[in-house]
Simulated assay, not measured.
Amino acid sequence: MKVKLTYVFDAYCGWCHGFGPAVTGFAAANAGRIELDVVSGGLFTGARVVPIGTMPYVAGANARIAELTGAEFGPGYQALVADGRFRMDSTAAATGFAALRAAAPGRALEAAEAMQHAFYVDGLSLSEPATYRHLAGRLGLDADAVLAGFTDTAATRDFTRAARLGVTAYPALLLHTGTGVVRLGGPTSTAAQLTGALGRHLASVSA
């Protein structure tokens, strides 16, 4: 019987961008024993949707993320930071992610990674329909079907689910147990470290 995990990320979260490859590697290495759901969190919503130029910590945080995880912050994204006017809207990104997830339910993690590459490397807005046409093509999906799946209620459902899981910071990889959820690793964990953490939890349950 597979164990259930939930990965809560935000497409506009730099630490999630750094953590994504580790989660992907972990999921691939443990495909035979885990069932992984991917859910959007709401990092930038409401009054937090402001021009990126008003966030003086961004450049330093990105340098730290790159140093600790090897994440790439490409020229397209760097241009957005330099310009300063771009607004990261997590509701729009979560809406787009939900549409991609609905079009390819078994490839949610791949869709999340594709979105973060589109933003953090290529500098594409995750609020624009054109970006999702691009992503649909990259993922081999029907672009019209993806765009038809855009509903704000999908984003709200994800935000509510993340809140019910007690997630207040991203990324969060959660293992569901009989007594609640257990967080596996942290933003700088490797795939091997996540696999080790999962193994220890499963061993403690069966002991």
Score class of each variant (00 low, 15 high):
Lys2Cys: 04
Val3Asn: 02
Lys4Gly: 04
Tyr7Ser: 04
Val8Asn: 00
Tyr12Met: 12
Cys16Ile: 12
Gly18Lys: 02
Gly20Pro: 03
Ala22Asn: 00
Val23Ile: 15
Thr24His: 10
Thr24Ile: 09
Ala27His: 01
Ala27Leu: 06
Ala29Cys: 11
Asn30Met: 10
Ala31Ser: 14
Ile34Met: 06
Asp37Gly: 11
Asp37Thr: 04
Val38Met: 00
Ser40Lys: 02
Thr45Ala: 11
Gly46Trp: 12
Pro51Gln: 12
Ile52Lys: 04
Gly53Val: 07
Tyr57Met: 13
Ala59Asp: 13
Gly60Glu: 14
Arg64Leu: 13
Ala66Thr: 15
Gly70Leu: 10
Ala71Lys: 02
Ala71Val: 05
Phe73Arg: 05
Phe73Ser: 08
Gly74Tyr: 10
Gly74Gln: 09
Gly76Asn: 11
Gln78Lys: 13
Gln78Ile: 09
Leu80Ala: 08
Ala82His: 10
Ala82Asp: 13
Phe86Ile: 08
Arg87Pro: 08
Thr91Glu: 14
Thr95Pro: 01
Thr95Asp: 05
Ala98Glu: 04
Ala98Ile: 07
Ala103Tyr: 02
Arg107Ile: 00
Ala108Arg: 02
Ala108Leu: 05
Glu113Asn: 11
Glu113Ala: 14
Ala114Asp: 08
Gln116Trp: 00
Ala118Trp: 03
Tyr120Glu: 04
Gly123Val: 14
Ser125Asn: 12
Glu128Ser: 14
Ala130Tyr: 07
His134Glu: 06
Leu139Cys: 04
Leu139Glu: 02
Gly140Trp: 03
Gly140Lys: 03
Gly140Cys: 07
Leu147Pro: 07
Leu147Asp: 09
Gly149Pro: 05
Gly149Asp: 07
Phe150Ile: 06
Thr151His: 14
Asp152Val: 13
Thr153Gln: 15
Ala154Tyr: 09
Thr156Ala: 15
Thr156Ile: 12
Thr156Glu: 15
Arg157Tyr: 04
Thr160Met: 07
Ala162Pro: 03
Arg164Gln: 14
Leu165Ser: 08
Leu165Arg: 05
Leu165Thr: 07
Leu165Lys: 05
Val167Thr: 07
Val167Trp: 01
Val167Ile: 12
Thr168Asn: 14
Thr168Asp: 15
Pro171Met: 12
Ala172Glu: 04
Ala172Asn: 05
Leu174Gln: 01
Leu174Lys: 00
Leu174Glu: 00
Val181Glu: 13
Val181Asn: 12
Val181Met: 07
Val181Trp: 02
Arg183Thr: 15
Gly186Val: 09
Pro187Val: 06
Pro187Met: 10
Ala191Gln: 07
Leu194Tyr: 05
Thr195Trp: 03
Ala197Pro: 01
Ala197Trp: 04
Leu198Ser: 08
Leu198Ala: 10
Leu198His: 06
Gly199Thr: 14
Arg200Glu: 15
Arg200Asp: 15
His201Ser: 13
Ser204Phe: 08
Ser206Asn: 10
Ala207Asn: 07
